[in-house]
Design a protein around this nucleic acid. Structure first.
Length: 487
RNA sequence: CGGGGUGUGGCGCAGUCCGGUUAGCGUACCUGGUUUGGGACCAGGGGGUCGCAGGUUCGAAUCCUGCCACCCCGACCA
């Protein structure tokens, strides 16, 4: 165990905050709930960005950028949307400072005519712009994505999982038909599933949100739900079918072929830096972060071992040969030739940072024409000959293994139950996903939450619905839904 | 917003109850040397308005008053 990190079994909260700090992901900032994302943490986020951005462009989306500040009046236009965000908005009311009694104060004379809201999400700004951009069916579909920061004044915050300011991408699309907008909503959900499962190696359940968990202003909200190590669920991404709600609120109409005007159909969707939190919570251990190879900024780190200057040269020369050979295969390889630290220190350091594969090479290896490989996912050390080494294949295996391990854990912690006492028992003991029947009413959902703290994470999409009786009320239920305690 | 706690070199803390030399320890940092297969060692060095403001006192990190910040636990959220 790392001496820097509190063990997870002892204190999961301390484990998490120790890890994000000591793995070099974040530093604390002087603003409550906000985080400084360190270069190492940001490089992981940049990898997520690059992979997703490419995918979005391949599927016809374009990036644009909209203002951080939104006039208060824009919020009045979509009422359910306002209600959803009103309690967590930061508002700009002044534009000037002044000095008084040697202190910096807000100049009362600089109060704005209309207050500006720091965006909690950009639907209102973007739909206000779409009114100007969209005239004809020829302007559709409009497929826009934005990489941005947003502000949500949450009561309790944690780095990545729930921060006051966070980074995300938000897609906002407009379509001529309902079907097309719905298809877009679901296509995006699949792009997210692909990103999260195949790149981040985190298994997810995709589904529909119930009415009470639905995005403010949406007709239907789809989501990705993942299970964390502690048995709690975390929503990793959402895709909303907006119907014509925002088009009506912002008067966005288009002329059809026959000349008649109709409101456009919309979707919006996003994933955020919360994905970073999920990576930590799903794969991390008491030694630190564990990164899936596809995401790791450094996939392989080589640590040279030597006893004198002559050996140092010899070992480093051989290490560089491996480095350039692997780099030619397209791998991201780092040679840690700092003389400042001993090998043991470096081993611990790279484990903390979650590098998937560590290679050690020393005088004994030179003699035997071998190297030592250390798999971060299994904490397994193996010695292989220079001819037998297949780093590319090993990284694939690590990627695969990480997903499988997480998948098995998720399955192991998914319980099907028809008994409310058992339901409560499982929740209080080990947590996890609970697949149970529900009568479809918001009242029952709220009752269950009050009695067990569990919420309906989603109505899963991939199943053959079977009828049953609600676990709480015994009333008719059309299918099982997924309950869990959530972050 | 309710309950609990903490503010002292970059980080982690001791000292505060019971005021009194130059505010201490670990770690990190800088210099030099020895080291290097699982977080090395020795020697030397730099770094603090003790959260802020006011008060009591010959004297305040320590006592009093007010304020501020942050963390943890419960009700909202990607």
């Amino acid at each position: 165990m790392s001496r820097l990190i509190t063990s997870r079994s002892k204190d999961p909260n301390a484990w998490y905050s120790d890890l994000v700090k000591h793995a070099g992901l974040v530093s604390k900032s002087s603003v409550r709930g906000c985080m400084v994302i360190n270069p190492y943490g940001f490089s992981i986020w940049e990898r997520i960005q690059q992979i997703l951005d490419l995918r979005l462009k391949e599927t016809g989306h374009q990036n644009a950028y909209f203002p951080l500040m939104i006039p208060l009046s824009h919020f009045e236009k979509e009422l359910s949307h306002v209600e959803g965000f009103a309690k967590e908005c930061a508002v700009v009311t002044h534009h000037r400072l002044c000095e008084r009694d040697k202190q910096i104060k807000i100049d009362p004379a600089s109060e704005l005519e209309e207050a500006l809201v720091l965006r909690p999400t950009s639907e209102t700004t973007i739909w206000n712009t779409y009114r100007d951009w969209i005239q004809s069916y020829r302007d559709l579909p409009l497929l826009i994505n934005q990489w941005a920061n947003v502000i949500r004044w949450e009561m309790r915050t944690r780095p990545f999982l729930r921060s006051t300011e966070f980074l995300w991408q938000e897609g906002h699309t407009a379509h001529a038909t309902q079907e097309e907008a719905q298809t877009e909503t679901l296509d995006l959900l699949d792009i997210y599933v692909d990103l999260v499962e195949n790149t981040l190696a985190i298994p997810v359940v995709k589904g529909i949100k119930t009415e009470s968990e639905r995005f403010a202003g949406a007709v239907e909200t789809y989501c990705l739900e993942a299970l964390m190590h502690d048995g709690k669920a975390l929503q990793l991404g959402t895709s909303h079918f907006l119907g014509q709600n925002f088009a009506k609120a912002f008067d966005v109409k288009f002329a059809k072929q026959d000349g008649r005007l109709e409101y456009v159909w919309g979707s919006s969707w996003g994933v955020s830096t919360r994905l970073m939190g999920a990576l930590i919570m799903v794969h991390g251990d008491d030694k630190g972060l564990v990164l899936p190879p596809k995401l790791a900024p450094q996939q392989v780190v080589i640590v040279p071992i030597y006893y004198d200057e002559e050996q140092r040269k010899e070992v480093c020369t051989q290490a560089q040969r491996f480095q350039s050979a692997w780099e030619k295969q397209g791998l991201r390889v780092h040679l840690d030739d700092r003389d400042l630290h001993k090998p043991g220190w470096k081993f611990a350091e790279w484990e903390l940072k979650g590098v998937p594969l560590r290679v050690a090479i020393g005088p004994a290896d030179i003699k035997n024409q071998s190297i030592e490989l250390f798999r971060r996912d299994r904490l397994e050390k193996i010695s292989v000959s220079w001819e037998g080494v297949n780093v590319l294949g090993l990284l694939d295996e690590i990627q695969h293994n990480m997903f499988q391990t997480a998948k098995e854990r998720q399955q192991k912690h998914t319980h099907i139950t028809d008994d409310y006492d058992e339901f409560k028992e499982i929740l209080s003991q080990k947590g996890g996903f609970l697949s149970a029947h529900w009568d479809g009413t918001t009242e029952t959902e709220a009752q269950i939450q009050q009695e067990t703290q569990a919420t309906i994470r989603c109505i899963p999409l991939s199943q053959n619905p079977k009828e049953g009786k609600c676990i709480r009320t015994q009333k008719k239920s059309s299918q099982r839904v997924l309950f869990a305690k959530a972050y």
